[in-house]
């Protein structure tokens, strides 16, 4: 576990070295070219699926990554399997719906990394909801993780990125946020709300050179998809998490605003968005 104690703020000034150096050589030497490749990242929701693939790809490229999720063992396996990579993987077990813990944990992690250039929120919970089920407890749990967790983390990141006038925020939303479908009303709601929140942040932070990228995946071979298949849904044409991660990093680095992954979903979404309600009511999509 890397947060909390050993990465707490610096000890009392007497413990540290030359003062005057501060003016001459700042310790944190971010490359001065604009849009430099990121060196330090946090991925929330890193124990499987897209988050895990992003961690693997980033650390292979030499980025130091904090991999954060609930399941400690999964994270430790991930860190172990990335052992030979150019970048470090720092596992951190945390439940994103533990909002009150976020500010301190975030500070400790950024200090551990020595700064932050990229933040990815990839946590997502899709609970199975029956066609006639209206279960508030299930729904609020999804909102807590997908939306509450996203807001709790990304707000902290936004405060840091705004004041340092650099950084990229990536939110992994979903195609499910495009229309209010019958299937899982609150999952879709959480993603639609996330899209709205991320767009607002993008506009707020634009003047500070901070970019917010909303990713809307279609079908990706993840645990979420496996669960949907287990319910008997037939899903074809899904891409691997690795392919998704590649597209996502490309989109984030190109400072794209909203991107469907894979690309074909851009067209699907355009169609779905434009189906009139009187028809949509009768459809089973």
């Amino acid at each position: 576990m890397s947060h909390a104690t050993e990465s707490a703020p610096h000890a009392h000034p007497e413990a540290a070295g030359d003062q005057h150096a501060a003016a001459h050589e700042p310790r944190d030497s971010t490359p001065s070219t604009k849009r430099a490749r990121e060196r330090r990242a946090i991925v929330v929701g890193a124990s499987s699926g897209i988050g895990e693939a992003l961690v693997r790809q980033l650390c292979a490229e030499g980025v130091d990554v904090v991999a954060l999720a609930r399941r400690r063992e999964r994270l430790e396996e991930l860190a172990l399997s990335c052992g030979g990579s150019a970048g470090r993987v720092i596992p951190c077990a945390h439940d994103v719906s533990d909002f009150a813990a976020v500010p301190q944990l975030f500070e400790a992690l950024v200090r551990e990394l020595g700064g932050l250039d990229l933040f990815v929120f990839a946590s997502g919970l899709m609970t199975e909801v029956g066609p006639n089920e209206f279960d508030t407890a299930k729904d609020l749990e999804m909102l807590a993780v997908n939306l509450g967790g996203c807001v709790a983390w990304t707000n902290e990141v936004a405060k840091l990125f705004r004041t340092q006038r650099s950084g990229v925020i990536v939110g992994i939303s979903s195609i499910a946020g495009e229309r209010g479908r019958k299937g899982n009303p609150v999952y879709g709601t959480s993603k639609a709300a996330m899209n709205h929140y991320l767009e607002a942040l993008r506009n707020r932070l634009a003047d500070f050179d901070v970019h917010v990228c909303t990713i809307k995946p279609g079908f990706v071979e993840t645990a979420m998809l496996a669960a949907a298949r287990a319910q008997g849904r037939s899903i074809k044409g899904a891409i691997t998490p690795e392919a998704a991660a590649k597209s996502i990093l490309r989109a984030a680095r190109a400072r794209r605003n909203e991107v469907f992954v894979p690309f074909k979903w851009t067209l699907v979404a355009a169609v779905i968005r434009n189906i009139p309600s009187f028809l949509f009511k009768g459809m089973n999509i």
């Binding site: 501060a22 700042p26 944190d28 500010p103 700064g115 902290e156 405060k159 840091l160 004041t163």
Partner: peptide, 15 residues
């Protein structure tokens, strides 16, 4: 909150 705190001239700052 945890921020980057800098002097007005931006040449000096720290988390």
């Amino acid at each position: 909150s945890f921020e980057y705190v800098e002097g007005w001239g931006m040449a000096i700052g720290a988390h």
